[in-house]
Design a protein around this nucleic acid. Structure first.
Length: 879
RNA sequence: GGGGAUUUAGCUCAGUUGGCUAGAGCGUACGAUUCACAUUCGUAAGGUCACAGGUUCAAGCCCUGUAAUCCCCACCA
């Protein structure tokens, strides 16, 4: 294969992915149930396990990947590829989400556009229709995952509605039912009248809004005039239309204004009912009039007040948002219509005493923005007490390591305040709740509800008793909580080396909704935490640090960037400059610099291939023949160590930074430049292989493309072994560091002179310096000075500002004189550094208490600076 | 009300248990160019590490307080 002369990722990325897939390299090498004969002989058992497992947070099967998915895949795939190179049997399990509510909303919108409504079809029919709808859309998302380079085991893709998922969910539910953790409760739920479904607390969005606080007079049923006080109580409310559901008025027991009214009765306006005045801490004397009407069926707080005082619940708003159980006049009105009418009528009766505008937060449906109506409904609830308690115990036992660390505490704090979990959703697109309600009335001994897996049936019969299925489906998070269990095919019977997962990587925003539930479910089902570590990434913001949103028009599509710059560039760009848990800005620039690195690597490889072609492919082990060669071995070793350390700590950005610097600033700029003179083919080969493998986790395509292009490499880079340490001579390596210092200083001095002399290159002279003498050609090439000669006789020209080397640039007197100011400035600068070092040494406490090596370093530095100043000063005198 | 963060160069961010002159990318300025790479090479400018105290031989880092910005949870009749 011949290298194309320019780096064109679009030419090879899809072919390479296809080749990997065809070769089956994404599959784990050890099966779930290990047998004796499938060890691959290269176990890297640093943590005791030959296996590495990670699951993909399933993207919506019916959507496209967004930038957050891009980050997720970049991070997870880098981990996967890294541990694969480290010799682990790596299992990266892909997924697709039925995305219950999301997909349902899209589908229902489609249905409405065609003039239909969901109510024309029964549940099974709708389920089948959405299934087909999603099946049409599937594939897009999977193609995009491939374009991002996800090296996941496609045969094991788990769809959230797969049989095994449903089975597992039913098994857990049954266990919970038998354990008495599931109950049917009439509770207030967050209800969206538009979608006609309930939501978990976590799915509701609160927004601050302007509203009106009305003050309504409720007259006392028994007049208290004789006591000379009040004959009425004024309540504050933002929802006058709910007064039909009022069952009490609450005041605070400590509120002197109303104390004497507790236990009395008031007449509920516009009705023929009387309701009691009760004392409850919920009433805040500071807020409004200090008296609050209690409507347990339509307000969360009132519901609790009702529970405390055993009050009835009167539902006055129907599930589609119309008034029910109200006087004829208001019956069937929408809540807003009713509100207007009520206010008008109250006003006419002189009962409307005040109207204030206030700011308060209002709950909205996170999908359609409709105001959430607290609705009294019978739903299935999970009693979370035991689940949360167990989870907290294991978290406090540090069984899961969090990145960033602080999320552990945040999660524990959340679990401590967790309320019971409403798992019923009134959406057909989801896993049916396997509960059936008794309809045979005579069978009084039988329970009202029974568990049964046959949810494909609407009606079942057991022992002559008929039951009908609950129409509801599970909250998505109930099944998602099983993700690590179902993806790894964990079972009660067999040991599974892939469970718990090594790591769970997902967005920080899912800590509560998902991570918490996976931990609770994992512990409940398997008795073990579902993963050893959690890595949470933050949100990807636009270049100005603003949240991306369609309405702002600042959404970046990852696929556009992949097309434009290549998948590797995207991956490098999105990981760079990003740390765990932080919401951070992202701009195309970082992708461009990623692309540039790929291009650099491409050209490095072309250069080395051309040297191999010219000099012949000398195989076998290398020997180092000069300082630069020893030095690059040392630098590459350091780089590998740092990358290993970074990966261990999930510091992806740091790993990339290290590689970037090593490849570009060290390998290309110094080593390869020196190799243009020396040409050590076996070393060039092994070092190139090493950096390619080390970069492979982050830039899989270009490293594989190069691997395939090089004449001497075999197999795929994806299945290579992580490189071993390179052998080198440390003293020689250190000498090269001095040479770099010399070259840099000469370059800098020449540049400083060029201001007046247009970068004219002057000859370099050395006095009694073996490092320079032994490397004349190299220094000449790197500095581009025309010649390097021994200094014969007295120092002349311009002294290069180096402490340990006697070097002069052969610059005419006149130019040196012009340089005088810069020289003076330089002496002053070094002098300032020297002063601060001296000050440190003058402090006896420093010499006493600081570690000895630091004190020594300071001494050495002082000596060096003093030498440098002395030399520069003598130079100044020469001028 | 409860919890969690952030504040370092023009911009976006690193800076691990305190330890040499606080780093990178982008941007800026100046210079280079017969080829591995202009998706390049070289050089440079640019910082009161939010502010005020404290601990320490030594603080960007630890402690206390202040300010600003942001996120999550609960509540707002």
């Amino acid at each position: 294969m011949k290298f194309s002369s320019s780096y064109e990722p679009g030419d090879f990325e899809s072919d390479i992915y296809a080749a990997w897939e065809a070769a089956g390299v994404f599959k784990p090498t050890i099966s779930i149930f290990p047998t004796d004969d499938n060890s691959d002989g290269h176990d890297d058992r640093e943590d005791g396990s030959p296996c590495y497992s990670i699951v993909m947070p399933p993207p919506n099967a019916n959507g496209n990947l967004h930038i957050g998915h891009g980050l997720t895949i970049a991070l997870e795939d880098s981990l996967t590829r890294y541990y694969r190179l480290r010799g682990k049997s790596t299992w990266y399990i892909p997924g697709a989400d039925h995305a219950g509510f999301e997909t349902w909303v899209v589908y229902e919108r489609n249905l409405e556009a065609k003039g239909h409504t969901r109510f024309e079809f029964d549940r099974n029919e709708l389920y089948a229709r959405v299934w087909d709808f999603v099946a049409e859309q599937r594939g897009n998302m999977e193609l995009q995952l491939r374009a991002l380079g996800a090296s996941c085991s496609w045969d094991d893709l788990t769809f959230t509605l797969d049989e095994n998922v449903i089975d597992r969910v039913y098994t857990t539910f049954e266990k919970m039912w038998n354990d008495g953790m599931i109950y049917r409760g009439e509770k207030l739920v967050n209800y969206c009248p538009k979608h006609q479904t309930a939501f978990a607390d976590i799915e509701v969005e609160h927004q601050d809004e302007k509203g009106t606080l009305w003050e309504i007079e409720y007259r006392l049923a028994e007049a208290l005039r004789e006591e000379g006080i009040l004959d009425a109580i004024v309540v504050s409310t933002t929802r006058p239309e709910t007064l039909f559901g009022d069952v009490a008025v609450a005041v605070n027991a400590t509120d002197e204004r109303y104390k004497h009214l507790i236990g009395k009765t008031v007449h509920l306006p516009l009705t023929d009912r009387d309701i009691p005045i009760i004392a409850d801490e919920h009433a805040d004397p500071e807020y409004g009039t200090g008296a609050v009407k209690i409507t347990p069926a339509h307000d969360f707080d009132d519901f609790e007040v009702g529970e405390r005082h055993n009050l009835p619940r009167i539902q006055v708003i129907s599930e589609d948002g119309h008034m029910i159980n109200v006087p004829e006049k208001y019956l069937g009105l929408t809540t807003m219509e009713c509100r207007k009418q009520v206010l008008k009528d109250l006003k006419e009766q002189g009962l409307l005493k005040g109207e204030k505008s206030i700011n308060h937060s209002v709950a909205h449906c996170y999908k359609c923005g409709t105001v959430i109506e607290p609705m009294l409904k019978e739903q299935w609830f999970v009693d979370v007490e035991k689940l949360a308690k167990t989870a907290i115990e294991h978290l406090e036992n540090n069984e899961i390591k969090f990145h960033p660390e602080n999320k552990q505490k945040v999660l524990i704090n959340y679990l401590k305040n967790l309320k019971d979990w409403n798992i019923s959703r009134q959406i057909p697109w989801g896993i049916a709740i396997p509960m059936f309600k008794k309809v045979t009335e005579e069978a009084t001994d039988e329970p009202d509800w029974i568990f049964d897996r046959r949810t494909n049936l609407k009606e079942i019969e057991k022992a002559g008793v008929k039951y009908v299925r609950d129409e509801d489906t599970f909250d998505t998070w109930f099944s998602s909580g099983h993700w690590p269990i179902v993806c790894t095919n964990w079972t009660e019977e067999n040991y599974n080396p892939y469970y718990p997962l090594n790591v769970m990587e997902t967005g920080a925003d899912l800590l509560f909704a998902w991570v918490a539930r996976m931990i609770m479910m994992g512990l409940y089902v398997t008795g073990e935490v579902p993963f050893r570590e959690v890595y949470l990434h933050g949100m990807v913001l636009d270049a100005h640090g603003k949240k991306m949103s369609k309405s702002k028009g600042n959404v970046i599509n990852p696929m556009d960037l992949v097309t434009k710059y290549g998948s590797d560039a995207f991956r490098l760009g999105i990981i760079r400059g990003r740390s765990a848990g932080m919401n951070q800005a992202f701009s195309e620039n970082s992708v461009i610099s990623g692309r540039n690195l790929c291009n650099k690597l491409w050209n490095i490889s072309r250069l080395i291939q051309s040297i191999v072609d010219e000099d012949g492919d000398i195989s076998g082990s290398y020997t180092t023949n000069n300082m630069g060669e020893d030095w690059i071995c040392r630098e590459i070793n350091d780089c590998l160590k740092q990358v290993e350390q970074s990966m261990k700590n999930y510091r992806f950005s740091e790993a990339i930074e290290t590689l970037y610097q090593t490849i570009w600033d060290k390998y290309a700029d110094w080593f390869l430049e020196s190799q243009k003179i020396f040409r050590n083919v076996p070393l060039l080969k092994v070092t190139l292989e090493t950096i390619l493998i080390a970069l492979h986790p982050f830039a899989p395509f270009v490293t594989e493309a190069i691997w395939q292009n090089l004449s001497w490499t075999e197999g795929f880079i994806i299945t290579q072994k992580w490189p071993r340490e390179l052998k080198y001579d440390p003293i020689s390596a250190e000498n090269f560091e001095s040479l770099i210092g010399i070259v840099s200083e000469v370059r800098g001095t020449l540049q400083a002179l060029s201001g007046t002399n247009n970068a004219k290159k002057y000859a370099l002279m050395y006095d009694n310096d073996s490092l320079v003498e032994d490397n004349l050609l190299l220094i000449r090439t790197l500095t581009k000075v025309p010649s390097i000669n021994p200094l014969n006789g007295a120092p002349r020209g311009l002294r290069v500002a180096l402490a340990n080397h006697e070097l002069y640039l052969d610059v005419p007197e006149k130019v040196v004189a012009e340089y005088r100011d810069s020289l003076t400035e330089k002496i002053l600068a070094v002098g300032r550094e020297l002063d601060s070092l001296n000050a440190r040494m003058m402090n006896p406490n420093y010499v006493d208490k600081a570690p000895a090596h630091l004190v020594k370093e300071t001494r050495d530095a002082i000596k060096e600076k003093e030498g440098l100043i002395a030399r520069l000063k003598s130079q100044l005198e020469l001028i």
